[in-house]
Design a protein around this nucleic acid. Structure first.
Lengths: 238, 238
DNA sequence: GATAAAAAACAGACGTGACTGATTAAAACA
DNA sequence: TGTTTTAATCAGTCACGTCTGTTTTTTATC
C-alpha cells in the first residue's frame, strides 16, 4: 500500500533502559526487534507472492510492502536469493500450519463417513487458499529455476510426510487398511489438486461439487473394500 | 492490436490495371517468405517456452533461436505482447493437433474396455509432453497477467469443447450414457492433470501406475453403471 | 521488356526504464 | 562515544522499443 515510513512501530521498551535487564539475557531487546523486522519482511514477501505472482516480485516491492527501506532489508537478507529461500521456507511452515489447523478443526464428534467427508472439504479449502496457490506457482516456476527446485524438493517431501502422519492420527480407522490408505490419499490429493489447478474451466462449482461427491463415495468404497465383493479389483494390472 | 493469422493477405491492390497481371499469383513469393519467417519465429518461441520457461523468455532469445535479427522479428511482431499472443495461439493449435493425433492413433481394432484404456494412456502421454507442460505454465502465469488470462480463457474453452467432440466420436459407445460421460471425462481429466502437475513427488511411476489402473477400473464402473447395482450412487448430494 | 521508384523484409545500434547490489550518510540505541 | 540499524544514492546489467540503414521483391514508367 502506501509507502511512508511510519517508523517501525515503536514497540515498547519495557523500561530496559539501564541495560541491566538480566531478565532476558539470551535475547536482547535489539534481537527481538531484529527478529520482528525479519518476520515483517517475510510476511510482506508472501503477500507479494500472492498479489503479484512469484515472477513479478522485486526486492523494492517487498521492502515497500513491509514498510522498510531497501537498505534495511538488505541488511537482514544480503541478496535476493537469500530472501527468496527464507520466504519459501516461511511459506512452507505456514502451509503446514494451515493444513493442520483446518484438519484439526474438524469437530471431534464427527465420526466415520461424515468425518472423512469433512476431511475432503477441509483439504479443498486448503487447496483453494492463497497459500497453496502460491506454493503451486513456485512448484511450476521451479521447473526452470534450479535454485528454487533445490529449495522445494525437500519441503515437498516433508509436506507429504507431514500430511500422511497427520491423516494417520486423525483418521485412525484406516490403520489396518494398509496400502488402501495410500491409495485413498493419492486419489484425493491428485484429483483435488487437478481441480484446484484448473482455474479457467466452465461450470466450475457444479463440476467441482459433482467430483467431490464422487470422490467421497469412492473413498467409502475403498474403506469398506475388505468387506465387500469388490476385493482386489484394482490392485494390479499390466 | 489483433494480428490476424494470415499475414500474406496484405497484398497490395495493383489498382493501376495494366490488365497484364490479372492472373497475378494470389500468394506472392514475398508473402510466402514472410509467412515462413513468421512460423520460424513462432516455433522458436514455443521452443524457448519449453527450454527457458515462460518468464525467462525474451525477445532477443526468441530472435536468436529463430535465426533472425531482432529488427526482423520486430518487423513481424511490433511488440512483445503481440508476439506472445501469436505464440500462445500457435501453441494452442499444436496442442489440439497433439491430442487428436495421439487419440486417433489408437488402433481401430481395439474395442470396448481395451480401447478406453488406450484412451487413458494416450491422454497421459499427451499430458506429460512438452506442449502441455508449457500450457500449464501459461495457465499458472495467467493468474497475475490479465493479458495472458484473456488470451487463454477462450482457448481453454475451445480445447475442452474439441476434446469432448473428439471423444464423443471416438468413444461413441458412451453415446447413451448422458451425464455419466461428462463425469468420466472430468474424473480422467482432473486426476491425471493432478498427477502430471506433481513433478517432485516420491515413487512417481509406481503411484502413477496404480492410480491409472484405479482410474481405468472406475471408468468401466461408470460405463457399466446402468447395468449394475450401483445405480444412482453418486448422482446427487447436498 | 528494361529500368527506376516504391514497398516490404531484414539487420544492427541507441536510449530509456527497471532491477539488483554496493556504498555512503544518518539515526537509534547501549 | 561507539556500535548497530535504517535510509538514501550510485553504478552495472538487462530487456524492451525506437530509430536508421541495407537488401530483396514488387510495381510503375519508358
Amino acid at each position: 500500500m502506501s509507502r511512508t515510513k511510519m517508523a517501525p512501530t515503536k514497540l515498547k521498551k519495557t523500561a530496559a533502559g539501564t541495560g541491566a535487564e538480566t531478565g532476558s539475557p539470551d535475547i536482547s531487546w535489539q534481537a527481538q526487534k531484529s527478529a520482528m523486522t525479519r518476520d515483517r519482511i517475510l510476511d510482506a514477501a508472501i503477500n507479494c507472492f500472492v498479489e503479484l505472482g512469484y515472477t513479478h516480485v522485486t526486492t523494492a516491492r517487498v521492502a515497500d510492502s513491509a514498510g522498510v527501506s531497501r537498505g534495511a532489508m538488505l541488511h537482514h537478507f544480503p541478496s535476493k536469493p537469500e530472501l527468496i529461500q527464507a520466504a519459501v521456507e516461511y511459506l512452507h511452515n505456514k502451509l503446514l500450519e494451515d493444513y493442520t489447523a483446518r484438519v484439526t478443526a474438524i469437530p471431534t464428534k464427527l465420526k466415520g463417513k461424515a468425518r472423512r467427508r469433512a476431511g475432503i472439504d477441509a483439504y479443498w479449502a486448503h487447496l483453494t487458499g492463497d497459500l497453496f496457490v502460491v506454493y503451486h506457482e513456485l512448484l511450476v516456476a521451479s521447473r526452470t529455476d534450479p535454485e528454487l527446485e533445490r529449495i522445494l524438493a525437500s519441503s515437498q517431501q516433508l509436506f507429504e510426510q507431514h500430511v500422511r502422519e497427520t491423516n494417520e492420527s486423525l483418521f485412525s480407522e484406516w490403520q489396518d487398511r494398509g496400502d488402501r490408505f495410500l491409495l485413498a490419499m493419492d486419489v484425493t490429493k491428485f484429483l483435488m489438486e487437478g481441480m484446484a489447478a484448473s482455474r479457467l474451466m466452465t461450470d466450475r462449482t457444479a463440476r467441482v461439487n459433482r467430483l467431490t461427491n464422487y470422490l467421497a463415495d469412492r473413498l467409502e468404497e475403498i474403506f469398506l473394500e475388505g468387506d465387500s465383493s469388490a476385493v482386489g479389483r484394482h490392485t494390479k494390472r499390466s
